[in-house]
Amino acid sequence: MDSINNGELSFEQAMERLDSIVSKLENGDVPLETAIELFQEGMKLSRLCGSKLEQVEQKIEMLIETEQGFQKKTFAPVNDDKGE
C-alpha cells in the first residue's frame, strides 16, 4: 500500500500487483478483512494504472548532455524531409 501512496510504482509493477490481488481474491481462502483490504488496494492500483494510461499529453524531450549533466529541452520536431 505504501509503495502506491508514494507513487513509486511503474505501470507494469502496478499491473503485476493488481494481478496478484485478483488471483488472491479469486482463490477465496482469505479472511473477509484481508479481502476488503485487497479490494481497496486493487481499486487504488487500477485508478493509478488508468491515470497513467490516460495521460494525454505526450512528454517528448530532447536530452542534451552538458558539463552540468543532462538537460532536458522540449522537443519541437523539424520536418524538412531529408530522409534521414
Partner: peptide, 16 residues
Amino acid sequence: LERQLQRLHQGMRYKL
C-alpha cells in the same frame, strides 16, 4: 486493465 478491474469486482462480490 478493464479485465483486471472486472475480475477484482467479481472476486470481491463472490467473496462477500
